[in-house]
Amino acid sequence: MIEIEALIKRFGPVAAVAGIDLKVAKGEVLGFLGPNGAGKSTTMKMVTGFLAPTSGRVTVCGHDIETDTIAAQRTIGYLPEGAPAYGDMTPRQFLTFIGRVRGYSGPRLNDKLAAAIFNTDLEPVLDQPIDTLSKGFRRRVGLAQALLHDPPVLILDEPTDGLDPNQKHSVRRLIKAMAPEKAIVVSTHLLEEVEAICTRAVIIDRGRVVADGTPAQLLARSRHHNAVTLTLPARDADAIAAKLKALPSVAGVEQNENGDGTVRLTAFPKGGALPVEDVSRLAQTGNLKISELYAERGRLDEVFYAITTHDTARGRETSA
């Protein structure tokens, strides 16, 4: 439903977006990740028609955003960065305004308003000026505005920024519930959000896509993917570490002091091996005093860090 081809945006000599190709299909929730300044927001601004690309093409539901702008924009619900809204209006006035501009009136407008207000839990603040609302409510006003016309495409720039954990949970539940019927792009800094709601994660850095896959695929790139961590008394640590190292499925072992007389040992897998069985067998047969033993799925922050810092360093080398 969203097709991005060779998208480039330059600001003077700087390429904020340096050639992005992406396709987002109905039913996908695409998590858009990347360090600050990587080009996430700039890309979203081009997809929604706020910025014109330097080159490249964006089509939304078959409409080219540059040549068929209005038709494309009709199909998009957009929450811009920072959830801007007219602060002197109340959420009710603001949403009514958005609804009218989108061509609704009378009972249909009321239906749309009611649904958007219900979905974002805005009822308690409907008649307070938006300027006086908390960050969480303002974000939800922005979200309600984007959802109002029940668009097939949703572009949400940091939809849960500033929300408390309960609100985050309800927004994520809402996004998940809408997902089957829509193509959704969500930019975020919160890696747990990607695991919670996204069917696909795209990491961009310096204006390029540096990773694209399901959250599970990205996790598999983590050093900790399938690693096994045990917690045990410090005095046993060295002996057990040596035994772990001897296991055929283990490539290496890392020791971390917990500070309370216990030590955490992490056994990293060799190749695609699954050391968890070997380690647990060792623990049973060796009659070890282990207070904790678990296999890790991988750490997204580690993958994120590895991919984006690596690329930044390389970028610096080539530009120097």
């Binding site: 209005i70 924009q73 801007p84 501009v101």
Partner: peptide, 14 residues
């Protein structure tokens, strides 16, 4: 300045 420009210009209005 307030960013509402982005909102206004991404609405389906010429």
């Amino acid at each position: 300045r307030t960013g509402t420009m982005e909102l206004l210009l991404t609405l389906p209005v010429p």
